[in-house]
Structure formats: structure tokens, C-alpha cells
Nucleic acid binder design. Structure first.
Lengths: 333, 333
DNA sequence: ATGAAAGCGCTAACAA
DNA sequence: TTGTTAGCGCTTTCAT
């Protein structure tokens, strides 16, 4: 049998109200009584039932995080940051995996709602905007992570936190274009907004540098080593005189490096390569990869702080917070 | 204002008991009434309050996972498996990060308890046994992951799931010793049980192969690229004629490869290398790493299934489940 | 400063 | 087949 507040009250010879008051410092208690109650709590090893508290308070001090892919290290870095701040501020997080499927995302949000979480962290996916409309009806505080929404702000008004995708990509292209006259782009999947930003910047900056755009300078693939490898092979065939590659992320960049090596190109002498994310392996490739650092933990921390602020101060927000990217210059460019 | 079961009952013109019965299929309801109630539920977009349910049922359908390091991909693979099964079986998981600190681990377990989780997944750490004693007093179902406890089984009786550390290490050493006459071991941190298993097998199998043991064949380091790199440098100095390296994990093995390359040794011609875990990068190193595959998701799935079985069937268990490791032969050995 | 009592939203036992 | 009601463990008035 579990020990409840009643047990404590009886044993200490006081009413349950008094015990509640000492637990929560929510009202005056004579020091002497307080001491007695506290002693009893320790003696009985009493632990308040958070479920019961949640019930009466109507709040759970829990937030749910809906993740499209628990296998991606970049996302997990953000989750780690989210977790840290949540714990520091007295919250617990429930992790829900949507597998990137829109209807699963919807189901996860529903689970979160049933569990009566006080707030929600949503990693942006193509389906997110739809989900948000639903959530707004509930008045559940949300923050969107990693991806910027494309709908008009009046439509879904929600704080968003992400790396400065554009700025980061520009950093990469700026550097690349210092050396490359015939740059190409190894693009990510076209349903990933991060891939789209990079693609867009690639095109824009070609124009800024008066390099005529050609569709053949771009090859798309999965966000993986294999994807980068295959894309590069195709590019090498189409654009034999390429001398610079902007890869949509580091996994792909690693594949780029391999394909280049196999084709006999030296990096950086013959071809310059820049990646994105600064994953663990970026420093260890051959040559070490020049890339854009993605401050994932910082983004996670920031997002959770924003969410909890919204929840606690009750003031809605639709601020878009862009966390600056940083160029990490190694040897591939 | 939130919609409660009362609202539904009133609107449908029935009692709350009836609504409860249709939600939970927990009693007879005339088909006609049932239809009306269900219509009302949809109309009002009613969603049962799980907190209230938990309150009366005394169960939360939630389990907590205490993770020592959210940055480690091997651990996160297990978490993914845990999550999958939890969701499939109707549970939610709370993720708690202990940062590998014993007292933080204790605090996390306390949080879990306060949240009234129905079960607990503990990644084994040096502090785990102590925590378990506490938990047992509560009668909270637990499963220990990744590490096998060393205390006597009567002491802490708890199901455990882990890779077959010994078998895996033997697989690695078996292969290595087919080629290597002067093998060395790049060991992990001595407070990590996985490192200890590998160390032990290394010593045992030297003996089995009549290779005289020498303390100098072993160098210890962090479970990182740097750790493996530095350890190998030291080893190279002490044992210039080494011709085989068993690395305690793949991160280290990657460092080993680098150190070997820098010292002018060719892999596998001059030196054979075997790692452990089969991380993403193992297939992509130069040369591709021969290693032991660590079925993390499978382990996670298994562990959660065991835990939920214990929770639901109520039968305690202290089974130790060893998931077989598998040798992945690539080019480093 | 403190105790008694009214709920929070739900399930389950009991009557009808 | 149904409606009514007593809690689940806690917080929070409201008296005292």
C-alpha cells in the first residue's frame, strides 16, 4: 500500500491541509508543526503523487516532443538540449516518434493532448502546419523546431527556432566561391526544407557571382553517405570540369569525398568541398571537412526556454528565432 | 473550458457511467445508445483525460527510461527500440538523462516515481545496483539494459538485457587471432563494464592461444576517436611489432586506423584491426572496419517487451537475456 | 495557524 | 441496459 498525504497527516496529528501547506509552502504553518510534519514525511518516506496534483492543478509540468526520426544525430542533439532545460526548470519530457509520417505526427500530438501535457515541441515537417491548426483550437502552447513554417503568420501563430539556414548556406557558398569557378550542388530530398534553403542559396549566389545557372549543376539524393556518393558520380559525368561542391549535409559530403577520391580528384586541390551540420565525423574525414556548424544543443535549449516562457508567462508569441551558423574551416575548402 | 465526460453525458442524454462504458467497452451498452454517445463524442471532439484515468486506475501507462548519455548513438539506438515497442503496446515513455552521475540517476528515478510511472528502464551504470535496492522497496517493475549487474541475483532480482558482450568479444578475437601473432588491445574506460568484458576476453584468448600475456599489450583511453588514436600511438611505441588491434569500440577503432596510417602501417596488410558496435561510420572508414554488430534497436525492443510483460502479467523475472552479436567482416581484418 | 470539506475527471460498484 | 454515487490523492477555499 502506498503512503498518501492522509497517512502523513494522521501520523503527525494534523490535518491534510496542513501537510499540503508545508509541502508547497502555500500558507502559514507554525514552525513547530512544520518541523513535525517534515519529520513524519521523512520517516514515512512520503512522496507526493504527481498525478493527483496534476489532476487538481490542471497542469502536468510535462511537455511532449514529437521527433520525426530518432536515428538522426542532428535531431537528437536538439532533443538533448530540450531535455536539459526542461529538467533544469522542473519539467519532464515525453518523447514521441512520428517517423516523419504526417498522420503518425497527428496521432502523436493526440497522445500528447490526452496525457494533458502543458506544452509541445514540434520538429517541423511538411505536415506540421496542418497539425498546428488543430493544436491552436486547444490553446496548447507550442514551439516549432528546426524548420521554418511557410504559411502566413496570421494563420499559424507560433514561436519557431531554427538555425539560420540561409545565413549558414551563404557562409558555405561564400567560401566555396572564393575558389570555385564551376561549383555544383549535391542537394538533399526535396521534401526537406533544409535541403530547399540550401538549394535556393546555391542558385542565388551563382547569380550574384555572375555564374550562369544550369540545371545540370544540381543533383539530388538522400541525406546519406550513399546519396552523396551517387549524386557526385552523376555530377562528375555531367560536369567533368567541376571544381567545387556544396553538399546539403555532412553525411552527403562524406560520400562526395569518396566519389571524388575514386574519380582521381584531389580535395581541395582539384575540387573544393563544403558540407553542412558539422557532425562528429566531419573532423575525421580525409581530408577533414570544411563545414557549417549546426549548434543543435543550443537550439534545443533555446526552444525549450521559449516554450516554458510562453507557458508560464502565458503570453503567446510568434517570434522566429534564428540561431547563427558558424563556418568551421578545415581542409576540404 | 475543457470538455469532460459530463458534458458528453448531458449532451447525449445519458449518465456518465454509460459514456465511460462505451469509451472503455467495459460493460453492456445498447447499440443505439452507443451510437448516440459516439456521435456526441465526435461532435464535441471529446478526449478522455488520461490524468484522471490514471488517478482512479492507479496506473499511468507510462514508463521512464533513464539514460546515462543522450549523445551516444549506441544508447539512442536502444532508446528507439524501447520507444517503438512502448508505442505499439499503448505506452508512453518519459526520457530522463542521468548524465552518468550516480546521484543524478537517483534523482531521476525519484522523478519517475513521483510521476507514478508503471515501469522503469535503467541503463546499467556503476551506480545502478544501489538504485535498484531502493526501487525494489517500491515494487516498481524494472529492466536493466546494456550492462549486466555484478551483484548476486538474490540481492537485486531484475531482468537484464544486453548484447552478448563475451560472445561478441570472442568473435572479434577469434578472427583477429587467425592473423595476428602479436595482438594488442585498445581498451575503454575502466568504469564501463563493456570495456571490462572486452579486456577480459582479450586476456583469456591470449592464454587460449598460448600467447604470453604482457601488461604492455594493453592501453586504455576514452571511448572516442581521440582516445583510440592516442592509445595506439602509445602502443606503437611500446610494441613496435604489433600486428593486430582489438579496439573496445568503433569510435576508438577509427582513431586506431588513423594512428596506424600515420605511422606508415598498412591495414590489413601490416596490422589487422577489429572494432565493436558497427556504428554508421564503420562501413565508411578507410579501410572499411571489420567489427562486431551491436543490435541496439533489437535490444531495446526486447527489453521493453520484457518489461511490459512483467508489468502486465505481474510475474517478476530475473532472466538475463543475452542478444547474440554478429561479426561484420569488412576490410580491416 | 489549522481542520474540514469541496471538488478535479474519471472508473467501477451498486441499484434500479 | 442504465443512472447514481463513492472514491482515487491532492489543493484550496472557508470556517474556526
Amino acid at each position: 500500500m502506498r503512503i498518501t498525504i492522509k497517512d502523513v497527516a494522521r501520523r503527525a496529528g494534523v490535518g491534510v491541509g496542513t501537510v499540503s501547506r508545508v509541502i508547497n509552502r502555500s500558507g502559514p504553518v507554525k514552525p513547530e508543526t512544520k518541523a513535525r510534519v517534515e519529520a513524519t514525511i521523512r520517516e514515512l518516506n512520503y512522496m507526493p503523487n504527481e498525478i493527483a496534483r496534476s489532476m487538481v492543478r490542471g497542469t502536468t509540468r510535462t511537455v511532449a516532443v514529437v521527433i520525426p526520426d530518432m536515428g538522426m544525430s542532428v535531431l537528437m542533439g536538439m532533443v538533448q538540449g530540450l531535455n536539459e532545460v526542461a529538467y533544469e526548470r522542473g519539467y519532464t519530457v515525453i518523447a514521441l516518434d512520428s517517423k516523419g509520417e504526417a498522420d503518425r505526427e497527428r496521432r502523436m500530438v493526440r497522445v500528447a493532448r490526452e496525457k494533458r501535457v502543458d506544452g509541445l515541441v514540434l520538429f517541423g515537417t511538411p505536415g506540421t502546419t496542418g497539425v498546428l491548426r488543430q493544436i491552436r483550437k486547444w490553446g496548447l502552447p507550442v514551439v516549432v523546431l528546426d524548420r521554418l513554417l511557410t504559411s502566413s503568420l496570421e494563420d499559424v501563430q507560433v514561436p519557431q527556432v531554427a538555425i539560420d539556414h540561409i545565413g549558414g548556406a551563404r557562409l558555405a557558398m561564400d567560401l566555396l566561391l572564393r575558389y570555385s569557378r564551376r561549383p555544383v550542388h549535391v542537394a538533399g530530398p526535396m521534401n526537406a526544407s533544409s535541403a530547399l534553403y540550401r538549394l535556393q542559396v546555391f542558385g542565388d549566389m551563382l547569380a550574384e557571382h555572375d555564374i550562369p545557372f544550369d540545371q545540370r549543376f544540381i543533383e539530388q539524393g538522400e541525406f546519406t553517405y550513399e546519396g552523396g556518393y551517387r549524386a557526385t558520380l552523376a555530377l562528375l559525368e555531367r560536369v567533368p570540369d567541376l571544381d567545387g561542391v556544396f553538399a546539403a549535409n555532412d553525411f552527403m559530403a562524406l560520400g562526395v569525398l569518396r566519389a571524388l577520391a575514386e574519380s582521381g580528384r584531389r580535395v581541395p586541390d582539384d575540387v573544393r568541398v563544403v558540407g553542412f551540420d558539422d557532425i562528429f565525423m566531419a573532423a575525421l574525414s580525409n581530408p577533414p571537412l570544411t563545414t557549417i556548424h549546426h549548434p543543435t544543443t543550443e537550439i534545443g535549449r533555446l526552444a525549450m526556454n521559449i516554450l516554458l516562457d510562453v507557458m508560464e508567462r502565458g503570453q503567446a508569441s510568434s517570434d522566429v528565432t534564428l540561431v547563427p551558423a558558424r563556418l568551421v574551416r578545415r581542409q576540404s575548402c
